[in-house]
Design a protein around this nucleic acid. Structure first.
Length: 199
DNA sequence: GCCTTGATTGTG
DNA sequence: ACAATCAAGGCC
């Protein structure tokens, strides 16, 4: 398939999360330049009420509204008042399940990413949720937008999967810090720093 | 209303 | 180790 469809994201979030590894994050800038990265690290936030670490755990608010919208759309929020983090909404509307994009491997447009990242280079470009959002020019304006089409989108992996998926606890949580909802491309050098060796 | 806490990052 | 900085949640 050339494009991901709504059904891909409508599945259980713990199935979608590992399937997003290897997929491409694509941003087409207003001038037409293309930024592309291969997803290597994600975290799942389940919407069944059993995940106290999820923004959706206490129901809809203005900030997390997109989490309860249709699958295949972005949920973008401001973290610590400074950084932007991007999620992909999963499961049927009203569920409140999403996958956080934590790290990508740059494939195209690295010079433009570097400019946006204030000169940072190499893995520092995209090895964290706030970093990749900055590199790909993701802003709160992308909150609620479709990830299936448009200037910011997810494209399917090309070719068969050639890596192992590693599972580990999520990063930086004070609640439910033991749940194994983090999925990474095993051994990738592009993982986020909180990553430790669990990749 | 007021205070605390973050799904983080850069710097010391 | 800690500041930057804002939206939610908890509590009075």
């Amino acid at each position: 398939m050339r494009r991901l469809d709504r059904a891909f994201f409508a599945r259980p979030v713990l199935e979608v999360a590992p399937d997003l590894l290897g997929c491409r994050l694509v941003r087409v800038l207003p001038g037409g330049a293309r930024l592309e990265g291969r997803i290597v690290e994600v975290e799942a936030y389940v919407g069944d009420g059993t995940d106290p670490a999820s923004h959706a755990h206490r129901g809809p608010t203005r900030r997390n509204r997109a989490m309860f919208g249709p699958p295949g759309h972005f949920y973008v929020y401001l973290s610590h008042g400074l950084h932007v983090c991007a999620n992909l909404v999963c499961e049927p509307a009203g569920t409140g399940a999403a996958v956080l994009l934590r790290a990508v491997e740059p494939l195209e447009g690295e010079s433009r990413m570097r400019a946006r990242r204030g000169g940072s280079d190499g893995r520092e470009l995209t090895n964290g949720p706030g970093k990749l959002a900055q590199a790909f020019a993701i802003t709160l304006a992308d909150d609620g937008r479709s990830a299936l089409r448009g200037a910011l989108r997810i494209e399917p992996a090309r070719g068969p999967r050639e890596f192992a998926v590693a599972v580990s606890p999520r990063i930086g949580l004070s609640k439910a810090a033991d749940l194994p909802y983090r999925f990474t491309v095993s051994g990738s050098p592009w993982l986020s720093r909180g990553a430790g060796r669990a990749g």
